[in-house]
């Protein structure tokens, strides 16, 4: 835990490949939330992917090559904020393993030590104060397994939403259970993944909410994709986009 981190002047933002392609507005909102709190954001344009898909598939050489290209992008001793528990977990928990014994191990460890998941950073470092300007709404929260267990930041999204006076968080059954995405798992073991996401959508629907929010794009893609296929989908949103909207930020 980077509990000693002071509010910086400037930070690096790592947008993740999934947000780049599918949820760019979440990335924009995250940056705007940070900028509004008075912190400059650097977005190294050469960033691509943290390397996790290959890492979790056992292709370590390929994962390392991609990770190596990323760690070169964050030379300054400032925080690296990532709007995903999964990618943050990859960099923080697994880069040290991936680079063990490599010539650039020290550089990887340095990068890993500066990584923050977005909600963690907003709460613990920026101590952000949010004023809810939106209409009353009921939301369900799905916290990704990596945010919950690898990063240990499940409470951050809850506390951010807790600041919003018109947002009612509704608990759903088996909330801490995995949605069944698991990266390549969804493709390699599609039957099990399908059974898991089906149960997850049922529990969220049973909660009777207006919206689903999460700190991870992968889970959102899985759960909302399943709801859309079923029809009558509950709208879902990345937490950054939801917070920005609720607190008066105009979507650009």
């Amino acid at each position: 835990m980077n509990m000693t981190q002071q509010k910086p002047d400037t930070l690096y933002f790592f947008g993740t490949c999934l947000i780049d392609l599918m949820y760019p507005q979440a990335g924009v909102s995250a940056i705007q939330l940070i900028q509004r709190a008075g912190v400059n954001v650097i977005f190294p344009p050469a960033q691509t992917c943290c390397g996790q898909p290959a890492w979790n598939s056992g292709y370590r050489d390929e994962a390392r090559a991609v990770a190596r290209a990323q760690i070169a992008l964050f030379p300054k001793p400032i925080p690296i904020v990532i709007p995903s528990g999964s990618c943050a977990g990859m960099m923080k928990a697994h880069y040290p393993e991936l680079f063990k014994g490599e010539a650039d191990e020290a550089q990887a460890l340095d990068v890993a030590g500066r990584v923050f998941e977005l909600t963690e950073f907003l709460v613990d470092v920026l101590q952000i104060e949010l004023q809810d300007l939106g209409a009353p709404i009921k939301v369900a929260v799905h916290t990704s397994c990596s945010a919950r267990r690898e990063m240990g930041v499940a409470d951050k999204i809850e506390s951010l939403l807790g600041q919003l006076s018109n947002v009612e968080r509704v608990e759903h059954a088996r909330k801490p259970e995995c949605c069944g995405f698991g990266g390549t798992f969804a493709v390699k073991e599609p039957e099990i993944s399908a059974a898991m996401v089906l149960d997850k959508t049922t529990h969220i629907r049973n909660a009777g909410v207006d919206r689903l929010v999460s700190q991870d794009g992968g889970c959102l893609m899985n759960i909302s994709g399943a709801m859309e296929k079923q029809g009558n989908a509950i709208p879902s949103q990345h937490i950054a986009e939801f917070l920005w909207e609720r607190t008066g930020g105009n979507a650009s």
Partner: peptide
């Protein structure tokens, strides 16, 4: 997409990428 789309819609790509949007917004590309 085979197994994926048996219970889900295909992943929906955005209109433009985060990289493009940030460039347009002038976020520091140092």
């Amino acid at each position: 997409l085979g197994a994926w789309t048996s219970v889900r819609t295909a992943p929906k790509l955005a209109e433009s990428t985060l990289h493009e949007r940030l460039k347009a917004l002038g976020v520091d590309h140092e």
